[in-house]
Simulated assay, not measured.
Amino acid sequence: MPAKTVKAAIDELRNAVQSLEIAIDGRFDKERDVSEFEGEVRRVNEDRSRLAQELDQSQFRANRLEEVNREVSRRLVTAMETIRAVLDR
């Protein structure tokens, strides 16, 4: 009977080691997944920051173009008024 007890203990130990290896593999897989997820979150945040900066620059350019457009319109009105005044004389 002691041989069977030793064999059963060895089988239990073998099963426990196998279960531990499976658990460790699962843990490594989860850590890899978390690492990949964190990397993706980092890339998304970098993209968001870049896009926010580009949006700010685009808004600045749009505002500047609007100012220039108003100035050109004002100058055109002034030029047209000057031409009318000259033609009316």
Results as ranks from 00 to 15, higher is better:
2 P>E: 03
5 T>V: 14
5 T>D: 11
7 K>C: 09
7 K>G: 12
9 A>H: 06
11 D>M: 05
11 D>S: 10
12 E>K: 00
15 N>V: 08
16 A>G: 14
16 A>F: 09
19 S>H: 03
20 L>R: 01
21 E>Q: 08
21 E>L: 11
23 A>F: 02
23 A>R: 07
27 R>W: 01
28 F>S: 06
29 D>Y: 01
29 D>M: 02
29 D>A: 13
29 D>S: 05
30 K>P: 05
30 K>R: 02
32 R>M: 14
33 D>V: 02
33 D>E: 05
33 D>Q: 01
35 S>Q: 06
35 S>Y: 03
35 S>E: 13
37 F>D: 06
40 E>I: 02
40 E>G: 10
42 R>F: 10
44 V>I: 09
44 V>L: 15
45 N>H: 03
46 E>A: 11
47 D>L: 12
50 R>L: 12
50 R>V: 12
52 A>V: 06
56 D>N: 12
57 Q>L: 11
57 Q>C: 03
58 S>W: 06
58 S>F: 15
60 F>N: 04
65 L>I: 11
68 V>M: 10
71 E>A: 15
73 S>I: 14
75 R>Q: 09
76 L>A: 14
77 V>D: 15
77 V>W: 09
78 T>N: 10
80 M>A: 13
82 T>K: 06
83 I>C: 00
83 I>S: 00
85 A>W: 04
88 D>S: 11
88 D>W: 00
89 R>N: 15
